[in-house]
Design a protein around this nucleic acid. Structure first.
Lengths: 339, 339
DNA sequence: ATGAAAGCGCTAACAA
DNA sequence: TTGTTAGCGCTTTCAT
């Protein structure tokens, strides 16, 4: 069964295919009668517009490319959820690419999207300096680009992020307010601004309240349950003096929590714990895990809205890039409140 | 800056554009010298193949469409994660569509994909009888189609699912084996085979062990933490005699668990709880939540592999559809083991 | 209100 | 090994 085209409809109705095309796109200059006839015939013949042809000719695909490290984390899948919903409501389809934090995958994704002639690219980067050139390729081609959560600040690209510095500060300040004085920090070894900012917030909060910043209390590694456990184990082994742990990610915090409970420590009475990201499990565990909410779905929606707004303004690369910074929401729960 | 095409490269090198095309697709009949020259020039001019044109002409897009209810659940985002990874490794891109369990959205997604001339559609349906016609449209158009997790069994379409009947049976049998005798079941009000099968497994297990099946112990609703709480609250209000709850989904089980603990019941000593889906939080809560693992990532990978295999065989709609059924993995944890 | 014609950038069959 | 040619199915400009 060959596919129906506008030519088939035209033949059936004895008009030219351009008339059919007009009717289908409801062009103003078309009689109501022919339009109705065309629509009826199209339906009868099971016509499906060929978007490839249409896009090739018009130069617009109504497709945007999304690049994320991985969908297997509630953070990114939530953001993508919000993003897709809004873009979809506005007539866009989404091509999805996971990098697995690999730079070469990220390059391949960009390449594919460019070849597919997407109307824009929305990305959460896996590397910053390393991948900068590739993103410059995108702007050179004048393809609208937007960063979310993880941005490359040196590039003049609009973005939607949260204030990670403030988040780190608030989290640490909260621990200090609860009476903890020797706060360890578990962060990522990835060279990403978000983690550096959370760390900077942590450090500044300590200094603000006249607490010493001890390099030995700062652990860098691959964020995970295991890393959380190992880091705490190390502190215990070295008999370090700590009474709280602020992890830059919830699973890591959970690892710390589990190990401490296992070893018989009381959380939050003896040791306080703060996570980051508001994973679903945090509310359910005992003691419930204090954390920072990143407004994931809202971030997705804001990203979509900013994109739509910018793409509507026609001069994407003409104006100074708008950078939306969302406020983190501190969620103090039981694990950091001894009283 | 206009985009570079094969014509630009051809002009630069004084060959015809078809020579360039051949070099770029490394056609066998092309001299090493011209090929090298073309590649060099392509790079220098920043050439990017236009996949729209290529696909329009060749009839292949190397894009597949994925339809899921929502990415904002760890189940679907995990499956999509596995799926995308494998498809990507095999040169496919993924268009993503979320239906939000809405049938009209599901129709729109199918429509869009068909218009985009995807090379195949992989779907987890939101409705069965209601949406059947639309899926028949797909097979009429000879577009490869595959179901995962939620399939429409009446349609001759290949699928990758788990054995929900067995899962329901195993879960219930486990509770019975632990000594529970009055087991309530909380399930979805959606008209989907997966839930009916879990229920059938539950019922058959009760019968197998000579326990009565009581209609009043079966609750249907929108699976969620709240639904879990409400259902249990109802049983308490009516002073019903129950000593275990098997929920068809983990959040619902969690709701049941929370309410019972709140009311001072001992889990698992007085009342046992089983969930379904192996959400991340289950391992971390106290008592840890017994559940059934659905092998999400593996399901995504199997789906991708089956799709690739079938698409390779050229005669997608010629053979009887292969239906892969994965085994569920029972994860008995603390919430169902009183001893 | 409709028709005619050009062309988006590529693939692929046929010639040379 | 390279060139020629004919579209894929549509949008869009210019005529009528």
């Amino acid at each position: 069964m060959k596919k129906t085209t506008i030519h088939d409809i035209a033949r059936e109705l004895d008009v030219t295919f351009s008339t059919v095309a007009r009717a289908l796109n409801d062009h103003p200059a078309i009689s109501a009668a022919t339009k109705a006839a065309v629509l009826e015939t199209a339906k009868r013949l099971n016509y499906q517009q060929n978007k490839l042809a249409s896009s090739l000719r018009s130069g617009r695909t109504n497709v945007i490319g999304i690049i994320v490290p991985s969908l297997d984390t509630s953070f990114f899948s939530s953001v993508v959820h919000g993003l897709e919903k809004v873009m979809n409501e506005n007539g866009y389809s989404m091509l999805l690419y996971q990098t697995g934090e690999s730079l070469s995958q990220e390059q391949k994704g960009i390449e594919t999207f460019l070849q597919s002639r997407v109307d824009g690219i929305i990305s959460s980067v896996s590397g910053e300096v390393e991948i900068k050139e590739f993103y410059e390729q995108i702007s050179k081609r004048q393809v609208p680009l937007l960063f979310f959560d993880r941005a490359i600040n040196e590039l003049p690209v609009p973005s939607v992020t949260i204030n990670d510095y403030r988040a780190g500060f608030l989290a640490t300040e909260h621990l200090i307010g609860q009476g903890y004085k020797n706060i360890a920090h578990l962060t990522s070894d990835q060279n990403l601004t978000i983690f550096k900012e959370r760390f900077r917030g942590y450090r500044d909060a300590l200094q603000r309240y006249n607490l010493p910043v001890d390099e030995k209390m700062i652990f860098k590694g691959k964020l995970s349950l295991e890393f959380g456990k190992e880091s705490v184990q190390q502190m215990l082994d070295k008999q370090m003096n700590f009474d709280a742990v602020f992890a830059a990610e919830d699973y890591t915090a959970m690892g710390a929590l589990q190990l401490l409970l296992e070893k018989g420590y009381k959380v939050p009475e003896e040791i306080g714990i703060m996570g980051f990201a508001n994973e679903a499990f945090g509310a359910f565990v005992t003691p419930s895990l204090s954390t920072v909410d990143q407004q994931t779905i809202r971030m997705g929606e804001e990203t979509a809205h900013l994109f739509l707004k910018l793409i509507g303004s026609k001069d994407y690369y003409g104006t100074t890039p708008e950078r939306i910074v969302l406020d983190p929401i501190l969620l103090p729960r039981r694990s950091s409140q001894p009283d």
